[in-house]
Structure formats: C-alpha cells, structure tokens
C-alpha cells in the first residue's frame, strides 16, 4: 500500500470580502497516495484552484487540518516538497529560458555545477534542448508552458501541483502536452495533483478524478479511472474511456445546476 502524501481532514476556507463571507471550501476530506495522478474537476467557483493553493500553502485554511508529506503545508513549502505550475507560464522576461529554469535553484542556493546539470536534464525532459539562450517572449505559448514545467521539475520535488497548466493553449498543443505529461509521470513516478475543467483531459491523465461542486466548494464524488499506465491518444474513443467520461459528466451535472 503506497503511503499517503497529501491528507485533508474536514478542511474549511472562508474568504472575507466586501460582499460578506465567501465559502470557498467546505468540509473537504481527501487523501492522496504517493505516485497517484489526481485531477480536481468542476465548474468555476467550485474551489478546485483554492484547494490546490491550500496544499501549496498559498492560502491558509480557516478550519480543519491539512498535511503534506506528514508536515504542515508551510513546512512542506519551505522544504520545497512540491513544484507548482501556474495557469500561465510566468517566466521572468529578463531571464533566458535556462536562467528561468535555474531561478528556483538559485533561491535554494545550489552551486553552479548542480544548477547547470539540472537545467540541462530538465530542459531535455520537456524537449526544449537548444532553446536555453532564448528569452521567454521568443517562444510559443506551448513551449513557454513546457519551460515552466521544467522549472517546477528542476526543484526535484516529490509532487507536482498543476493549476490548469494547459488551459490557455489550443487543442492540438494541449493534446501533445497531455501525452508528454503522461510519459513524464510514468518516467518520474511523481505524485501529481492536476486542476482542470476539461473532462477528456481529466480522464486521459488521471488515476482518480475528484468532482467538485460550487457554493460552497465541496467534493461531490471521487471517480476511479483505471485505464492502465499505457494510454495512447486513441484511448479516448474506447468504450471504457467514454464510460468514465460519462460518469464524470453526470457527477458534474448532479453537483451543479446551471439554472441557479
């Protein structure tokens, strides 16, 4: 039995806004085991990004407990237990691609030789070898997002937290990056928590899909997604795939009425 690395117990989070309190997360209980690929899916406002940010210690919960690698989220953040990939690549425009990937390594205070080696290997991992000296704005959106994944991996974290990383990209690039991400996951055996609002993307990538519903943000249903480790893009036309996708869609419908 793999070890539990992320554990949320009765998590609550309320934002105080000018319009009164907003219940972003309510009574979230979720365990994620080492090596899992868990997708958080739901309509906007369901708290999927907020949950990811609580795991990353970018938000503090107002109730319940959260543990990451057996530590508090803050300790885990300071121990660089995770790599975070944002919706946009957020590469610093004054740094070349290699210096962007090296940014977290500089913050960690690693020596130059280690930095150079990690930059080289992680850029190769996302197929960006040869683009080291380019500046971010000289690369396409898909390449920028790959560079930001290389940057998250360079920290050599045990887990990856990804917040709709391909949401701003077109369908073709997105398919391609989904395939590459699966291969990367199979190769590195990292725990991945992946926020998305695309059903095919969630089913294609995940071992488990957490369906969330809004107002207040809560977990509606957790669906196992046992498609095996080897998933070519064609798998999306198989009955097994479509059955899970249907299940997710039904879950989203039940948890969220568009007539509200």
């Amino acid at each position: 039995m793999p070890e539990t690395v992320i554990s949320a117990q009765n998590l609550d989070l309320t934002f105080e806004t000018n319009d009164g309190p907003v219940h972003a997360l309510k009574d979230i209980t979720l365990d994620i085991a080492e090596g899992e690929f868990v997708s958080l899916i739901g309509p906007s406002g369901c708290g999927k990004t907020t949950l990811l940010r609580v795991i990353a210690d970018l938000e503090k919960p107002t109730g319940g407990t959260m543990s990451v690698n057996g530590m508090t989220p803050e300790q885990a953040r300071l121990a660089r237990a995770y790599g975070y990939v944002f919706q946009q690549a957020a590469l610093l425009p004054w740094r070349t691609i290699e210096d962007n990937v090296g940014l977290p390594l500089e913050v960690m205070g690693l020596d130059r030789a280690t930095r150079t080696e990690r930059i080289r290997s992680n850029l190769a991992l996302v197929n960006l070898a040869g683009f080291e000296k380019k500046f971010p704005w000289q690369l396409s959106g898909g390449m920028q997002q790959r560079a930001s994944i290389a940057r998250a991996l360079a920290v050599e974290p045990a887990m990856l937290l990804m917040d709709e990383p391909f949401g701003a990209l077109d369908e073709i690039v997105r398919d391609h990056l989904n395939e590459q991400l699966l291969k990367l996951w199979a190769k590195t055996k990292k725990t991945v928590v992946f926020v998305t609002h695309s059903i095919p993307e969630a089913v294609f990538l995940s071992t488990r899909i957490v369906v969330m519903s809004p107002r207040p943000g809560r977990i509606h249903e957790i669906i196992d997604c046992d498609l095996g480790p080897d998933r070519p893009l064609d798998i999306r036309e198989t009955p097994e795939f479509l059955k899970i996708a249907h299940q997710v869609r039904e879950g989203l419908k039940a948890g969220h009425s568009y007539d509200e």
């Binding site: 210690d57 953040r77 957020a90 913050v107 920290v155």
Partner: peptide
C-alpha cells in the same frame, strides 16, 4: 510584479 510571479517565488520558499 504580478501576483502569480510573487506566488511563484513563495512556492520556492524565497
């Protein structure tokens, strides 16, 4: 600098 860039530095424990 943007919120996202500052969050990024925060995830590095900077």
């Amino acid at each position: 600098s943007s919120d996202m860039e500052r969050d990024l530095m925060r995830t590095y424990g900077a």
